[in-house]
Amino acid sequence: MTDAATRSDCPPRRLPSHLPSHPPRHLPPRAGLGLKPEHYGHVLEHRPDIGFFEVHAENYMGAGGPPHRYLEAVAKLYPLSLHGVGLSIGAARPLDKAHLSRLRTLVERYKPQSFSEHLAWSTHDTGFLNDLLPLPYTDETLARVIDHVDEAQQAIGQRLLLENPSTYVLFADSTIDEIDFLEEIAARTGCGLLLDVNNVMVSSVNHRLDPRTYIDRFPVERVGEIHLAGYDETVDGAGDRLLIDAHGSPVKTDVMALYEHALARTGPVPTLIEWDNDVPDFATLQAEAVRADALIVREAARRNRQTRAA
């Protein structure tokens, strides 16, 4: 295993000076929801008490029409998080310049409080592979991802939050621990991290790691947002538990407990409920947000008590 501390000696020279390391406007430390077309009308009519909304950038890359009309209206009422699922930051091939330009257009138009992407790859000669594929953690991939995160931040003109992946396989070639890998990227590019707690559970179970240890080792000072979602469960070829990052059900109890554990380290952080498949009615989504908000409030209160006691 390479020593991350040595590599961190390189100065974080890559964040251009015109990019504030802390964006002037933040997402609030509240629960947020993914904004789905089936809920546009409800949200605008009832203006539910939700901390922020998040959209997948790729769904707003058309020239016009209802998606932009509604997003414009919602972005006037709520803080907005723009979440990319197609930039393929972990690819060996160069980033798609046209895609970067489309992202920049969206950032300029909607001025989101946060922009995030994944530590994954999805591009190939045959086209876009439409999944978040895993990469080995080596010095070569680390250098590649650092270049790509740097290029993306320059092109988009905003600091990026990089999300920890959920994975189903490991690479024999990997020489760097995932958390060290993420921390080094952040140290070298000035990017923040998006801590997906469901992904932590999925990867930890899948690779026989302790999810709490993962959280305990995570550089929480770099976390700008947390994601929560529901996983599916099956078994692999040997009958071992295999969790699938499915985004189609309520957040599981063990992930909520892990989230509570994470909050104790991060403090109150903007927290998104991800539910992208079999999207339920808005009330069901809002109930999930209420669960997360309750834990955020409890953590804030706990910190207040600690401060007073001190």
């Binding site: 439409n130 396989v169 490991l170 070829g237 040997a238």
Partner: peptide, 26 residues
């Protein structure tokens, strides 16, 4: 080549999750 599991053995069922994701998604 080179994909493995915590057991140290590659597992076709695990790789199939990615295959499935691509085609189910599309």
């Amino acid at each position: 080549a080179g994909i493995t599991t915590a057991r140290g053995q590659p597992d076709a069922a695990r790789f199939a999750v990615y295959r499935n994701n691509v085609y189910v998604g599309l």
